[in-house]
Amino acid sequence: MNTVSPDMPVPSSPDVTPRPSVAVWPWPIALGLLTIFGLLSALLGQHGVWLALSWAALSIPLIVTVACLIRAWCRTPSVKGGQS
């Protein structure tokens, strides 16, 4: 029954060779701040330029998302489905 060798990768084991780590939070924080600004500028400003700023600020997270998706699927066209 000893089918699993001890050195088989366990899902939760930390990487043995650490690749350079990336700054995780700047993007989410920036998008979060934009969201907060967008939500509040329309709420507090209620008209004119504040509304336009709110629309702009709230669309940026969506635009960034779409940009990332497009980039991801353009870089590896038709490779998707290598394994399911």
Binding site: D15, R19, P20, S21, V22, V24, P26, W27, P28, V64, T65, A67, C68, L69, R71, A72, W73, R75, T76, V79, K80, G81, G82, Q83, S84
Partner: peptide
């Protein structure tokens, strides 16, 4: 996300 740049979507590996 420790080793991944923001917004990377790996489409070439397991679904």
């Amino acid at each position: 996300m420790k080793r991944l740049p923001f917004g990377s979507v790996r489409t070439d590996r397991a679904s």
